[in-house]
Amino acid sequence: MVARKRKRAGRNSEEGIPSPPGYSAIPIKFSEKQQASHYLYVRAHSVREGAKSNWPQKRTLFILNVPPYCTEESLLRLLSPCGPVQSVELQEKPDLTENPKEPKSKYFHPKPVQGFQVAYVVFQKPSGVSAALTLKGPLLVSTESHPVKSGIHKWISDYTDSIPDPEALRVEVDTFMEAYDQKIAEEEAKAKEEEGVPDEEGWVKVTRRGRRPGLPRTEAASLRVLERERQKRARKELLNFYAWQHRESKMEHLAQLRKKFEEDKQRIELMRAQRKFRPY
């Protein structure tokens, strides 16, 4: 029995920490008081051949199973010993798009992702990814020098951060509108360049921009438009009046028919009562 126990213990020590295929496990703890460890599963970020990615190859570390209490600042502090970190970004799920990413807004996307997340950590050198894959834990997320807020303190901090700074909000809105105006101007310039140029099949694209610009209205033209609108409203009111009158005439006609029906019934009853011929 003793030999079997020793054999099982040795097998567990050889296997080490369980992790998904292709990933390395890094144990972390929220603080020194926590006894059980949580595991981050990390690997070098890679995509299939021929596909594009928003993250630089050989310098990006992909992390699974990031707990809610682990912030971007915490990951930056935990992985800084491996090498200079360029950026850290948390997401709800892995990024599979190949389009360029738009910058995040602090004010128009305020709701954080609830639950466990994934993270992309970009190092300045590829050696940072190699060093992160060989990290041994457990690593502490919250320390005395870098405490992580939890409980009521985190709720108060989140509420304080939810109140935007008016000046910073104005700057962000102005920046967004400038970028939007520039994008519209580029699209209009591109449309003007393509207008009138036949494509491969000989078709010519025609847009509204090719028409003659409309002349501004004069005072007399504005008065004519207003007069047409007034006549249209008067005609609509007249049609509604006729419809109401038609309904009233129908109701009156039905009332007269019912009255005549009752009178005819009374007349028939009277004629039956006055007839003198009685065969029996």
Results as ranks from 00 to 15, higher is better:
256 Q>K: 13
203 W>R: 12
199 D>V: 03
127 S>H: 08
262 E>I: 12
58 K>V: 07
92 E>K: 13
100 P>V: 06
223 L>G: 00
167 E>H: 11
96 L>I: 05
152 I>C: 07
258 R>S: 11
100 P>R: 10
248 E>N: 10
23 Y>N: 05
43 R>Y: 04
211 R>T: 14
152 I>A: 15
88 V>P: 00
3 A>P: 02
178 E>K: 15
73 E>Q: 13
22 G>Q: 02
155 W>G: 09
173 V>F: 06
26 I>E: 01
241 F>A: 13
91 Q>I: 10
241 F>E: 15
95 D>N: 12
41 Y>N: 02
269 E>V: 00
90 L>N: 03
224 R>D: 10
12 N>A: 14
128 G>A: 06
137 G>C: 00
152 I>D: 15
87 S>A: 14
87 S>F: 07
185 A>T: 10
202 G>Q: 05
122 V>K: 02
201 E>R: 13
3 A>S: 09
123 F>V: 02
166 P>Q: 08
85 V>W: 01
172 E>P: 01
260 K>F: 06
261 F>I: 07
60 T>G: 00
244 W>K: 12
112 P>D: 06
273 A>L: 11
126 P>D: 01
40 L>K: 04
214 G>N: 11
184 I>H: 08
40 L>G: 02
247 R>S: 14
244 W>T: 09
247 R>M: 09
154 K>F: 07
184 I>S: 08
40 L>I: 05
196 G>M: 03
231 Q>I: 08
34 Q>T: 11
173 V>G: 00
235 R>V: 06
33 K>L: 14
234 A>R: 12
4 R>M: 14
189 A>H: 10
272 R>E: 12
9 A>Y: 04
112 P>V: 06
262 E>G: 10
121 V>F: 00
248 E>R: 15
166 P>D: 10
177 M>F: 10
103 P>A: 08
219 E>Q: 09
122 V>F: 02
20 P>C: 03
66 V>M: 01
246 H>M: 12
154 K>L: 15
228 R>Q: 15
108 F>N: 04
236 K>G: 10
197 V>C: 09
263 E>R: 12
73 E>K: 11
58 K>H: 10
36 A>E: 15
152 I>P: 05
148 V>K: 00
177 M>W: 07
155 W>D: 14
175 T>H: 10
275 R>P: 00
12 N>Y: 08
221 A>Y: 09
215 L>K: 14
105 S>N: 04
147 P>W: 01
30 F>Y: 10
19 S>V: 06
98 E>D: 07
43 R>E: 05
205 K>D: 04
275 R>T: 08
22 G>R: 00
223 L>M: 09
122 V>Q: 05
147 P>L: 02
43 R>W: 05
40 L>D: 02
110 P>Y: 01
264 D>K: 13
175 T>K: 09
253 H>R: 13
48 R>G: 06
218 T>V: 07
149 K>T: 03
77 R>N: 05
33 K>V: 07
223 L>Q: 11
140 L>V: 02
109 H>C: 11
83 G>E: 01
107 Y>Q: 06
32 E>S: 11
279 P>A: 12
212 R>N: 12
79 L>P: 02
